[in-house]
Amino acid sequence: MNSVLIVEDELSLQELYELILSINGFKIVGKASNGYEAVEVYKSLSIKPDVVIMDHRMPIKTGLEATKEIMQIDPQARIIIATADEEIEKMARSMGIISFKSKPFSNDRLINNIRKAINNPPVQANI
């Protein structure tokens, strides 16, 4: 079973992602409500998740800041940015994220993107 870490400060979305992913056969290995928690949870996991779904605009630490730190800890991390901030796409891609999704998107697209991310090799960061 493929594993996912959900990073999202919107609690309703966090719960919905969990539900969608569970129904579609993914295991949720952790949840975080801000970038700081995301890095801490990622570090604490002995077996790293196959995919991280990462929001950007969050309190304490943004998704991009957290992505940068996670990529430093684990350059093989597969991170999908799922955000309402389209303008950060270029910056996010340069960090080596595997996919970028602008909200709102369908559940199908989310699942397809996760599957694609798992089947593809991680992207090399260029910053």
Partner: peptide
């Protein structure tokens, strides 16, 4: 974000 929750 609201639309995303409703869409999900």
């Amino acid at each position: 974000n609201i639309l995303q929750s409703i869409k999900c």
